[in-house]
Amino acid sequence: MTSRIIVLGEHRDGRLKKISWEAIGLGRKLSAELGKDLCLALVGSEIEGLAREVSGRSGLEVVALANDHCRHYTPEAYCEVLAEFARRDNPYLLLLGHTYQTMDFAPKLATMLDRGLIPNCVDFRSTGGQLLWVRQVFNGKLNLEVSPKGDPPYLVSLQQGAFPASEEDLKAPPRVELRRAGVADDLLRRKLLEVMEAVQTKVDLSQAEIIVAGGRGLGSKEKFQLILDLASALGAGVGASRPVTDGGWLPKEHQIGSSGQTVTPRLYIACGISGAIQHLVGMSNSGCIVAINKDPYAPIFQVADYGIVGDVFQVVPKLIEIAREMRP
């Protein structure tokens, strides 16, 4: 049997996450290129309904790995189920989204399988039947080509938004293989107690037409006032990258990125933000992105439409002045 490419789908509230549709998109491409079958695996307790829906939509065979311990995610139950599946099916490649959940369990799964995990990939090249994965290193300033050593299964996680999603509804007859997986009770040491909202969000930036966001480069809470002033001059919403909310310069609810809000304004002005990937995933689909940063190599410039290499404390006051002239 030719070993397959398997996308490990991630779902929440009965829906497959966008990143999993992106992984399916890449899976289709690799499947054609390598001549290997593609299928999707889902882990959960009552998972068959979602499996049928996703199979019908994608036209892929879906393996539904069902276990009562997997009603809510825990790394131990998930890894037991997935390790058993991987050992039995011996896939060629396991493709995952690089999500917080993947970060929590996939390195454990890889270690159980005596394999490495190539995380957060943004691209791939295929050379002589071997896949070379491209991932970001050194704060996004360099890319690194990585390949797995040894035999399959290979484990690779994909950066969110790096590959186009394959979401069209193929209206295919569902093909679902339901497997009841075993998990020994004594393996489950980490217990989920509660899931809660991080902050009561009073600031909804998802509808903002313009967002002015500031980052570490502002330096202090006092100096962050500059961002508030530009936002007010432009009638814009105020956003921030993680160091700003970590430092208490602005409440957490203004944070944009993987652990905060995802925004798509018509105009996003990033001031003193270097552009860590955790921030970029929350704003890179904005209509027009302006970056102002003193470091010409800052990764924010990789996604910007307009860039100014300069000191935010000189450029932003000028912008405020001009904006006030325009909107008296």
């Binding site: 890889a110 070379l132 996004g140 890319n143 050593k149 970056a291 990789q302 996604v303 860039g307």
Partner: peptide, 19 residues
Amino acid sequence: KVTHHRLLAPERKKQTVMI
């Protein structure tokens, strides 16, 4: 468990107009 090959400058996703 993995082999590191070349380091490369990242490809730009957009044509950034530098002002």
